[in-house]
Design a protein around this nucleic acid. Structure first.
Lengths: 151, 151
DNA sequence: GATGGGGCTTGCCATCATGGGAAGGTCAAG
DNA sequence: CTTGACCTTCCCATGATGGCAAGCCCCATC
């Protein structure tokens, strides 16, 4: 199987398959005499696992761990569960941050006439926070914005 | 005011102040004879606006627009409202994507014994989606994961 | 057998906002 | 005058992904 066929069959782009190989997430592919990479159904199976894990929002580093456990027949399901739970926790932190942003903005939008006059509580709040939002909410917003940017 | 003082007063790191200047988000700072940048309270005011907008999750390009409207005394509040509403919509899309990931994972985690045995529905689902998640949910998950990665 | 189009190779660049670090100039306090 | 803290510019890295370009390979069609 060419890389293009493997890409179509797995849902992972050819570009990303090469990237995963270069970064060691997957082993180096077999090569034909032409230099073309050659993939087996088992390779595609691997790639589909990766694709699915990406769809769940796992980072490549986490997928590396998950792949190791997947291959390890003497794994402990507790190890898998721990990784998944950590990821859920991270998702929750980011969701909370974004929900807080959204809530703040929705409040401000609700106060904005949205007409051809210049008066705008949205700009007013950006200029001087607290006109429309309570101070304690601001502090949390700030912290979570930072956490979210990192994650 | 030195850049370090402006950074402390605005909550924007010195590094980012230089970056914003280089990319044209803020005008080039005045310089002392030594070559040091020199900031006025008005500059700090600008930076705090930017900082606050970043905390709300606005991208720098959006902040560029917002700054323009902020300066424009003949602005229409409708323009500000439109930008904010678009951002809320984008946040909503990303929140929905992450909530779906989280929900799927939570279901799987709930089915995982988390002990020293290898059997693991989490790995099973990554390997062969649908064992624990309905197919229509998978399709949405996939699409939203893509949208989320882009955003 | 030649030719053309599509697929493959590598390598480099860009994204977006942010931090890190090095090499060298400046300032202020002791 | 020295020392340490601050400033300057420039380069590099992040994470996962796409794009582009030069050049090679494969297959089908003429």
């Amino acid at each position: 199987m060419n890389i293009g066929e493997a890409a179509k069959a797995s849902g992972v782009s050819a570009k990303m398959i090469r990237y995963y190989e270069a970064t060691g997430l997957i082993p180096k592919a077999e090569r034909r005499t032409s230099g073309y990479r050659d993939y087996s159904p088992a390779d595609v199976h691997n790639l589909r696992f990766i694709r699915r894990a990406r769809d769940m929002g796992f980072a490549v580093a986490e997928i590396h761990e998950l792949l190791g456990l997947w291959r390890d027949r003497s794994r402990h399901s507790a190890d898998v569960k721990r990784i998944a739970a950590a990821h859920v926790e991270e998702l929750s932190v980011r969701i909370a941050a974004m929900e807080e942003m959204r809530s703040t903005l929705q409040t401000l939008i609700g106060c904005c006439a949205g007409d051809d006059r210049p008066d705008c509580p949205i700009l007013a709040d950006l200029e001087e926070p607290g006109v429309a939002v309570r101070p304690d909410a601001q502090a949390r917003l700030r912290e979570r914005a930072i956490a979210n940017r990192r994650g």
